[in-house]
Design a protein around this nucleic acid. Structure first.
Length: 211
DNA sequence: CGCATTCTATGCTACCGGCC
DNA sequence: GGCCGGTAGCATAGAATGCG
């Protein structure tokens, strides 16, 4: 048996991986844009509210998703979240001052701040390994690019785009207009390009890079 | 910066199906 | 047939975001 949270979580995930907001997916499916609002997932008395099979059927149809895949999305929602994690962080200006490194040059981590990593979980993020020199000088062969799948990609972001023709690319978003992206190539040997939303299978913001 | 668009939240009504 | 419990839809407002 699936729980209320798993069902709604699967709807959220389906919207994300399809490139829609939850309200956008509802509109696309011909439903009211508020149908999947969080405020409509519980009744005023606090009791859980469930989506109808008809609504689910419509969003599956509009996203060309099989029921078995929707069930898989419910399963992924049940995964235990990764343990919270963080790493020490220090500003460049502070790094030049005394007190943040010991006599042996090793960092005194208890004086450093922390940057949380617990927002990076396996459900929404995945890593791609760079192959070849096509993304030099920014990304080198062997670097890992962590992609925030479903995050809104905005002007100035570096993002991964997978096109309907199967091509996968990492670009910097120069401009985003309705229905189209203007992308700058990281490697100057490659020209900037324009791509239309309809040509994009999915895209995700580059959240982290291991170098 | 101002305007337009999109998204989200809230409260209400309409409609449907089950039960008595 | 009337009541009750449930989801969907409508109207409205505010926040967030994009664009010229």
């Amino acid at each position: 048996m699936y729980t209320h949270d798993e069902i709604w979580g699967a709807i959220d995930r389906l919207a994300k991986i399809s490139g829609y907001s939850t309200s956008g997916l509802a509109i696309k499916a011909g439903l009211d844009p508020t149908s999947f609002n969080k405020s409509k997932r519980v009744q005023p008395n606090g009791k859980a509210r469930w989506p109808s099979m008809e609504s689910i059927s419509k969003i599956l149809a509009v996203t060309n998703t099989a029921m078995v895949d929707f069930v898989a999305l419910m399963d992924s929602a049940t995964d235990a979240p990764n343990a919270a994690a963080s790493i020490p962080v220090l500003g460049f200006a502070q790094a030049g001052r005394e007190g943040y490194f010991g006599e042996d040059g090793a960092p005194i981590l208890e004086k450093w701040g922390e940057v949380p990593l617990d927002h990076i979980n396996g459900d929404d993020y995945f890593a791609l390994e760079v192959n070849g020199e096509s993304m030099m000088p920014l990304y080198r062969d062997g670097d890992l690019i962590i992609v925030a799948q479903g995050d809104s990609v905005r002007k100035g972001d570096r993002a991964v785009f997978k096109l309907n023709n199967g091509e996968v690319m990492v670009k910097e978003v120069l401009k985003k207009t309705k229905g189209q992206y203007v992308l700058r190539s990281i490697n100057s040997d490659f020209a900037d390009i324009d791509i239309k939303d309809e040509d994009i299978q999915w895209c995700g913001r580059v959240a982290w890079v291991s170098q």
